[in-house]
Each structure stands twice: as C-alpha cells, then as structure tokens.
C-alpha cells in the first residue's frame, strides 16, 4: 500500500516538474518556431545554481531558487539575442545552435563542479507528512504546490495581460502580429526568458530530490519532447495535459515493471502520436 501511495505521489511530482519544463519548450516553439534542444540543460543549470547558492554562498533555499530562475532567464535572453535573432531566417540553424548550447552548458557544469561529486541540496521542508500509516515527504508536496502556482500565474499572464495577448498573437501569425505594432524582438526575448526561467525553476525545485549531474538534463529534454509532441507542438495547455498523462504512465510502469520498458513504451507512444495524430492532443490541425 505504501508503494502505491508513493507511486501516486511520485507521479504527481513528476507531472508537475515535467509540465514546468514542457510548458517552456512549447511556449518557445509556439512563439519563435525554435525547437530548443538546450532546454533540458537550462533545467540542469537551475539545479546547479540552487546548489551553489544554498551551500557555497550559504543563503536560504528560497533565495537560491530565485537566483536559479534569474540566472537561467539571463541565459535564455542571451540565447535569443546572440543566436536566434541572427538566425531567424534559418529555422534549422536555430535547432543546430541549440545543440551547440546544450554541449557548452554541459561542459560548463562539468568544469564548474566536476562529474563525480555528490551535490546535496537541503530541502527547507525536511520530514514527511504522516497520514495514518502513510508518509508523504513534505518537499514532494511542496514541488507539486509550487508548480501549480507557477502554472496558474503563467495562465494568468498569457490570458489576462497585454503581454500574453501579444505572445498569443505572435504564435498565431508572426507577420500579422508585427503589423499590429507588436515588437517581435521584445516578445521573443520575454518568451525566451520566461521559458528558460520556468526550466530553471523546475531544476531548482527538484534539486533536493534528484541526483545533480551535468547530464541530468538529457532524460528531461527527451521526456519534454515526447510530451509536447503528445500535447501538440506549441500548445501550452496540451503540454500540461500530456505531462500529467505521460508522467503518470511512466512512473507506474517503471515502478511496477522496469524503467527500460517504460522508456521503450514512451518512445513508441511518441512514434504512434507522430504517425496517427501528428497534431497531438491540443495542437492545431496541420499538414506534416
């Protein structure tokens, strides 16, 4: 019974973390038509910054989290200004430079903290909530709540503000949006910072739970791509729904059967979606 409760809690947490990463990926694809392969590395950088600020600089976990968000958002802005902006007419070029950024960030993390060190981040919420005989670790509950709050804030931002209106307009039709006086450059920077910041936040939130390593972003980016393809490329709502479905499926299969089987099944699901339902759960119908 404890295993079932643990698995349910873990699926909820995995859904929350995956959703935070996948939303950013979907947002950037929707607005800028860039497939950001370095997105998983932004998650990794978020975890490293959280570790560095909370242990080496001896600040609190929450200020570390804020630093992680700010730092990854800064990386996002630099990527947009220095790379994507210059390659706007060359979508494949954008995809390829993100692979370059992926390798650079990985190497930077190796150089910064080494490969084989065990990096520990202390959670501000140690212990577990006890409900009758079951234990629910506080930090996992905190990750879920924080992710929901962030997602609600993002929905508000996209649905209720001028900025969100501009972002959605640009996702629909970039040229028409720019004719309406929307600055493509400014919105792109903002979207990229938002997306990177969300990935950084996810990394910071997960830092006390997962093993921090320079290569921790790789499974995350693969999951995120599966999820945004399932949800429909560029659709934020689709990404959230698909995150929940996929993470729950993956957590259950890897707990009760085997993680390799879960990975193979996940890849097959992605392939099936690409073949039979290329627009995903929520994407617009498009010819591929």
């Amino acid at each position: 019974m404890q295993i079932l409760i643990d698995t349910l809690l873990n699926s909820a947490m995995a859904s929350a973390a995956t959703a935070l990463v996948a939303i950013g990926l979907a947002l950037v694809f929707g607005v800028m038509r860039v497939e950001n392969f370095a997105h998983g590395e932004l998650y990794m950088v978020g975890a490293y910054v959280t570790w560095y600020v909370s242990t080496d600089l001896q600040l609190t976990y929450f200020s570390a989290l804020v630093c992680a968000v700010l730092f990854t958002a800064l990386i996002g802005a630099v990527m947009e200004v220095a790379l994507f902006r210059r390659l706007r007419s060359n979508p494949v070029g954008c995809l390829i430079v993100t692979i370059g950024v992926l390798l650079v960030l990985q190497t930077a993390a190796v150089w910064f903290a080494g490969i084989n060190r065990t990096l520990l981040v202390e959670s501000p919420f140690p212990g577990a909530l006890r409900v009758s005989s079951f234990a629910l670790p506080w930090h996992r509950l905190f990750v879920i709540v924080a992710a929901i709050v962030l997602m609600l804030a993002l929905t508000w931002l996209l649905r209720r503000t001028m900025f969100g209106w501009a972002v959605r307009a640009m996702a629909q039709d970039r040229e028409a949006a720019s004719l309406q006086g929307i600055s493509i450059g400014k919105i792109s920077i903002a979207a990229m910072m938002l997306s990177a910041g969300l990935a950084g936040a996810a990394g910071g939130l997960m830092a006390p739970i997962v093993r921090i390593s320079p290569f921790m972003g790789q499974p995350v980016i693969i999951t995120a791509f599966i999820v945004i393809i399932m949800g429909g490329l560029g659709s934020v709502e689709g990404a959230i729904i698909a995150s929940i479905l996929y993470s729950t499926f993956f957590t259950f299969v890897s707990t009760y059967i085997d993680s390799t089987v879960a990975a193979i099944a996940g890849l097959c699901i992605m392939l099936a979606v690409l073949i039979f339902m290329p627009s995903g759960l929520m994407g617009r119908t498009e010819k591929v």
Binding site: I99, G100, V101, L103, V104, Q106, T107, W111
Partner: peptide, 10 residues
C-alpha cells in the same frame, strides 16, 4: 571536448 564542439558548431 563537448564544449569545444558546441562552440565550433555555434
């Protein structure tokens, strides 16, 4: 090495 590759690629 990977980082140098990344820089070359960019």
């Amino acid at each position: 090495r990977p980082g140098v590759y990344g820089l070359i690629l960019i």
